[in-house]
Design a protein around this nucleic acid. Structure first.
Length: 483
RNA sequence: GGGUUCGUCGUCUAGUCUGGUCUAGGAUUCGAGGUUUGGGACCUCGCGACCCCGGUUCAAAUCCGGGCGAACCCA
């Protein structure tokens, strides 16, 4: 079936079509907000998860697992948290035969599952810092629009880190480390981002303050990529997480947490694809090189296929790209015409296609087609390995460059509110205007923009006056329509 | 949170306004066979659907009520 949607103009259609065709997720699971992640998609998702795990491991985090279910009483301990998450949290109250004695909560995030244990584990300053993460499913029963990978009711790859520290300074230091880890993660994912300090009235439930990573989707809407949160001592007090310090005094710990999810995978798909479909970067691609043998009927194809296998062996497990992904090669032996296979793998985003027929075998010279430009080139077998390594690297860079170009274009500064409104309406993105720092004014601007306040950059200089109250501006405040 | 529109084979859809040759048509996918194979080719055959519950009626895909689900717009 011929389908080609313009990624920017018909992003919704493009996204759904690509996910379905490329076999990333199947949205037909008969329940709103839950989607089946198919093997090709899951394979890429696993790679993303391991990028994150490796980074966290390198920075001294340990992986663990805490239960899905949380006793109701414990879940309700921290009141701001309860207020913030209560509305979208599922409660398990009965089996088919009887009511449960104690209601159980299905985690929307795991603070309340982890911290009672932190309270037991942390006894002395020697136990700190404690840095633990897990990658699990969490449930958030949002009634609003749901979308594959981007907005789901069951997050299946929620990676959450929770740390505890002896002092406020160490917690601050941890926030900086977390931001650095996430920067590295998004660099590896080739996702351009902005980091904002979240305005008070949008802060995570139960937190002191947080930073959010944001990017801009092809439809011009802003999307939150991840949050780094300073929890202060609120949870420590609610869950009685105390330690004996060097001075022999009992003190509450200072905590931070930060999380990402499969949403980042969806964002990568959206930002990296083109009108033809997916374009996989090397460290997410389940398959890097697909070999399409040009099989002729009534000929002995065994020799040709053997040659394909030889090429496969030659390339497989070579390291490619800036982040040294292991090349995976697939030979497409399906009984389809070559043309159909070309389109198929293009839509699924495989970076390199090799066309190997009699001619190539005879001349030991292979046709290499790259996904980003679709350019064909003949390459000698001897030079193939290096050529492919080089090309995959180039493809990664092209994709990243395009994403960055888009990103830059979509973030704009405005002298007047009118200007900002006009821009947000016509092309979307993230707009910023001068702001005095008062909640009231921030909310007013958001209202007028028909968007929401995303945050500000602490170190960004600003001169001039707030677009609402005309008092001295404290920050450039950023706004956008969000997912 | 409010409004509008919509729900038919796996997918995209015709049919609904005006109830009855609708035994629900097509395209595509899928399966079998043939033919072909260097950019989604072609031919033959086959499988395959009226979202759910209730109402009106001699008769419901079509009209009415409710539920569930989806899309878009506004706050």
């Amino acid at each position: 079936m011929k389908r080609n949607f313009n990624k920017h103009k018909e992003f919704n259609k493009w996204y759904e079509d690509v996910l379905q065709y490329a076999k990333i997720v199947d949205k037909r699971y008969p329940m709103k907000g839950s989607y089946v992640i198919m093997p090709y998609g899951f394979s890429a998702l696993k790679k993303m998860k391991s990028i994150m795990s490796k980074l966290l491991d390198n920075y001294g985090h340990e992986e663990a697992y805490f239960p899905l279910l949380i006793p109701e009483k414990i879940f309700k301990r921290e009141k701001d948290f309860l207020k913030g998450f209560g509305g979208e949290t599922l409660r398990a109250t009965k089996t088919f035969l009887h009511e449960l004695e104690e209601e159980l909560i299905i985690r929307p995030t795991s603070e309340t599952a982890m911290y009672p244990m932190y309270s037991l584990w942390i006894r002395s300053w020697r136990d700190l810092p404690l840095k633990i993460y897990q990658t699990v499913n969490v449930f958030r029963w949002e009634t609003k629009m749901t979308k594959e990978l981007l907005r789901v009711r069951e997050l299946v790859a929620f990676n959450e880190s929770h740390t505890a520290h002896a002092t406020a300074e160490e917690a601050e230091e941890q926030i900086r480390e977390a931001i650095m880890i996430y920067k590295k993660f998004f660099d590896e994912m080739r996702i351009p981002y902005e980091i904002f300090r979240t305005p008070k009235w949008e802060t995570f439930a139960g937190a002191q303050y947080n930073y959010d990573f944001f990017t801009i989707m092809p439809d011009g809407k802003a999307i939150e990529l991840g949050s780094v949160i300073n929890l202060g001592q609120k949870f420590a007090k609610a869950f009685d997480i105390r330690f004996t310090d060097k001075d022999e005094k009992k003190k509450y710990v200072y905590q931070t947490c930060y999380g990402i999810s499969e949403r980042e995978f969806g964002v990568a798909i959206a930002l990296h694809g083109d009108n033809k479909g997916l374009r996989m970067i090397s460290n997410l691609a389940p398959i890097h090189v697909v070999i399409v043998p040009i099989i002729k009927k009534n000929k002995n194809n065994k020799k040709l296929l053997d040659y394909c296998k030889k090429i496969q062996k030659l390339l497989e497990k070579t390291k490619c790209g800036k982040y040294k992904a292991e090349i995976k090669v697939k030979i497409d032996e399906r009984e389809l015409r070559p043309g159909e296979k070309y389109h198929d793998w293009e839509k699924r985003g495989v970076p390199i296609r090799l066309e190997i027929g009699e001619i190539e075998e005879k001349n030991k010279e292979i046709v290499v087609v790259r996904r980003d430009t679709l350019k064909k080139e003949k390459v000698k077998e001897k030079e193939l390995k290096e050529f492919i390594k080089k090309t995959i690297n180039e493809i990664d860079e092209t994709i990243y460059e395009e994403a960055n170009k888009w990103h830059k274009k979509m973030i704009t500064k405005h002298k007047t509110l009118k200007d900002a409104i006009k821009t947000l309406q016509s092309k979307g993105g993230i707009v910023s205007v001068r702001w005095c720092g008062k909640e009231n004014c921030g909310k007013k601007i958001a209202d007028k923009l028909l968007g929401s306040a995303i945050g500000y950059k602490e170190n960004e200089k600003v001169e001039g006056k707030c677009v609402i109250c005309n008092e001295k501006a404290e920050h450039w405040m950023y706004f956008g329509r969000t997912y």
